[in-house]
Design a protein around this nucleic acid. Structure first.
Length: 655
RNA sequence: GCCGACGUAGCUCAGUGGUAGAGCAGUGGUUUCGUAAACCGCAGGUCGUGGGUCCGAAUCCCACCGUCGGCUCCA
């Protein structure tokens, strides 16, 4: 099977489903941590709930916790909320804040609590108390409530002293949310808000949101002609436009080169496969809902009878194919470890409401690899993948990797002995590298423990990165074996890993990470040549023609060295050409006039930074060849934290 | 899939019952210019799709499709 994202740390309100904002970015004044802000945010949620009750006296209260950057509260209301309601609620909240009334805690027995909220017609609160463990709680089965003004809520606190301590908040959005997160339970209306110790903190946070919006890959994708998703073609299916196709081509060639260097065998496997293999792999049973199919295909000649019909499905994962590659003949221990890799395109039916630009799609290409080896080699192989993963993240300028080891879940396949071995191999691989990691107890998937690497992007958001799993399911189901030194069949260990994950999601993330300003090696327009005078013959002096000719020579020199370059011969104002090249995110603009043509130089205008006049063309070429070769991050890139390499070095030094 | 909002030109948006608008982009011309937008013209839309109400619908109602914010789920 394949890596599953651990969602436990991502279950929070955020602007996206795939990352969470790390507190580092909108720094809170006086060094307050997110934890210290919980009472503030939770208290603001209470004030909001009170205001909602003022506006809708019949509202039924759900829950209202503090979350990263703010809070929310769920309500069962007689009608849908409108933005105007949010306004009214916010106005009412400000009144209560101004009144500066105290938050008062009271304690009551479980029975009193049940009666209290039943009387107040708050069925969700009653349900919550009924769900409490009677043996829990300091006072043995007691519940606590908090009051302010005429609002009372079931709550264990803690809260601020008074409402006046709430300084800066804003109601952000309305959303539907299932009661207790269960899609079979009623849907409540959730109001999200944000709250901060000061107006300056709130302003910073709102600026951060604006920055996130500015970098949104869907917007940049349109503006820069990167990708398109067409309704008629099918939602969730990405068209890679020429510009982004360049980025992908570079990513893929580099990926292939690195994998060849590391002893991987690259393969291609079909996009559809018989139902039989997915029955054996367990996909039909466990994953059927997400699969496209079945396709009824005829076998052999003659009328389409039931016997001749065979059912095929579009592949949702690459692993069964790779198992079959391994099993294409008897394997000897001498061939191991066998590292099989593929840029494999898979299709999965995702519910319509979950689609999101390139980050959540229905067809995508994984940089999938399955390593078949013995237990003796497993740890070294895992370590090798880990090192490669870190190298990858470092090249792209991601920072602050956080490593999680997810161990056996309660519901699982396989024996304890196998889990011991699998977890041990992952753990040893990390420990012999002296890498700090966190254990996510029970966070593994039912068939595998795993290592997850998360990292931070340029504005401090944390993304799911590479994942490494030791698969305990497929080798059993497919009876994957090799012949050992003693001539006996032995079960192979199967390590599954992805580095990019999916090209679509990875590149969508890169667009936001770089804010559209790609490093030279990935850029679709590396150099824009801008001749100063239009190419018009017969203007007398011949200077225009010479300039134009020289511009073509410069272009030829660039293209001859494999650079993606264009020359803008249009009869337009140079300033317009510069602006447009800038908007297209050209890494360098070369302004060419009579002076340059005469001296064989170029005037360099980088995408960001100061321009340089009179640089010999040869020097410029040498310079950008080095920049391309080293995959240097662009000068206009600023990471949010220590690079992956620095972070790892630091961890090792500290242990 | 669920809740809510939204869908007008390639893009950003105006237009709320009476003959479809702007800016940018596109295109034709003029301008010949040294580092982020020269000037003038033209063209471009069965107002997401299909039904309905009405003398008349971009505008009101219903269904469907899609997008956005969440929920749920995930690479």
């Amino acid at each position: 099977m394949e890596p599953r994202v651990d969602l436990s740390s991502q279950k929070r309100a955020g602007r996206s489903l795939f990352f969470r904002e790390v507190s580092k970015m909108p720094k809170v004044e006086r060094g307050r941590s997110e934890e210290e802000l919980i009472p503030l945010r939770h208290s603001t949620a209470h004030v909001m709930a009170g205001a909602v009750l003022d506006v809708f006296p019949d509202a039924k209260l759900g829950i209202g916790p503090a979350i990263r950057d703010g809070f929310y509260y769920d309500f069962d209301l007689p009608r849908p909320l409108t933005p105007d309601d949010l306004q009214r609620i916010e106005v009412r909240m400000r009144e209560v804040v101004k009144q500066n009334v105290p938050f008062v805690r009271e304690s009551m027995t479980r029975e009193e609590g049940l009666r209290f909220f039943a009387e107040r017609q708050q069925p969700y609160k009653v349900e919550l108390i009924e769900g409490f463990d009677p043996d829990e709680g300091a006072a043995g089965g007691s519940v606590s409530i908090y009051k302010h003004a005429n609002f009372v809520d079931l709550c264990k606190g803690p809260h601020l002293e008074r409402t006046g301590e709430i300084k800066a908040f804003k109601l952000m959005s309305i959303a539907g949310a299932y009661w207790r997160g269960d899609e079979h339970k009623p849907m409540l209306q959730r109001i999200y808000g944000t709250a901060w110790p000061s107006q300056a903190d709130l302003d910073r946070y709102l600026a951060q949101l604006a920055e996130v919006e500015r970098r949104d890959h869907r917007k940049l994708g349109r503006d820069l002609d990167l990708f398109s998703i067409d309704d008629e073609l099918g939602s969730g299916l990405v068209l890679w436009l020429p510009n982004l196709s360049v980025v992908r081509e570079e990513l893929e060639s580099w990926w292939r080169r690195i994998h060849h260097e590391r002893g991987y065998t690259l393969v291609y496997t079909p996009h559809i496969a018989s139902e039989r293999i997915y029955q054996r792999s367990g996909h039909i049973d466990k994953y059927g809902e997400n699969m496209y199919g079945p396709l009824e295909l005829e076998q052999g000649e003659g009328p389409l009878s039931a016997e001749r019909r065979q059912r095929f499905w579009i592949k949702p994962m690459n692993c069964p194919g790779h198992v079959k590659v391994f099993q294409s003949r008897v394997r000897s221990y001498r061939e191991l470890p066998l590292r099989i890799g593929e840029l494999g395109t898979v299709y999965r039916y995702e519910r319509s409401g979950t689609l999101h630009g390139m980050l959540r799609v229905r067809g995508f290409t994984q940089d999938d690899s399955h390593i078949f080896c013995s237990w003796a080699d497993a740890q070294a192989e895992i370590g090798g993948v880990f090192d490669l993963a870190m190298e990858f993240m470092n090249v792209f300028g991601y920072s602050d990797p956080v490593i999680y080891l997810s161990t056996r879940p309660a519901k699982r396949l396989g024996t304890d002995e196998m889990w011991d071995k699998a977890e041990g191999a992952l753990k040893e691989a990390l420990e012999c590298r002296k890498v700090a990691y966190r254990i996510d107890e029970g966070g593994g998937v039912f068939y595998a423990p795993k290592i997850d690497i998360k990292m931070r992007d340029a504005i401090g958001r944390e993304w799911q990165g590479p994942t490494i799993q030791v698969d305990l399911n497929l080798p059993e189901r497919f009876d994957v074996t090799y012949v050992n030194e003693k001539g006996e069949r032995e079960r192979a260990v199967m390590i599954h890993r992805v580095l990019y994950g999916s090209l679509e999601r990875f590149v969508g993330g890169l667009i936001e990470h770089y804010a559209g300003n790609f490093p030279l090696w990935l850029s679709w327009l590396q150099v824009a040549v801008i001749p100063l005078k239009p190419a018009k013959a017969g203007d007398g002096s011949g200077a225009a023609a010479r300039t134009s000719e020289y511009a073509d020579e410069v272009l030829a020199a660039l293209r001859g060295r494999g650079f993606r370059a264009e020359v803008d011969h249009r009869d337009a104002d140079m300033r317009t050409k510069i602006k447009q090249a800038q908007e297209r995110k050209a890494n360098y603009m070369l302004v060419i006039g009579a002076r340059e043509a005469e001296a064989g130089t170029v005037s360099i205008r980088p995408r960001h930074g100061a321009q340089e006049q009179g640089v010999p063309l040869r020097d410029f070429l040498t310079r950008i060849e080095e920049e391309r070769r080293s995959k240097a991050l662009p000068p206009d890139f600023h990471g949010a934290g220590p690079s992956v390499a620095e972070a790892v070095a630091e961890q090792r030094a500290g242990t």
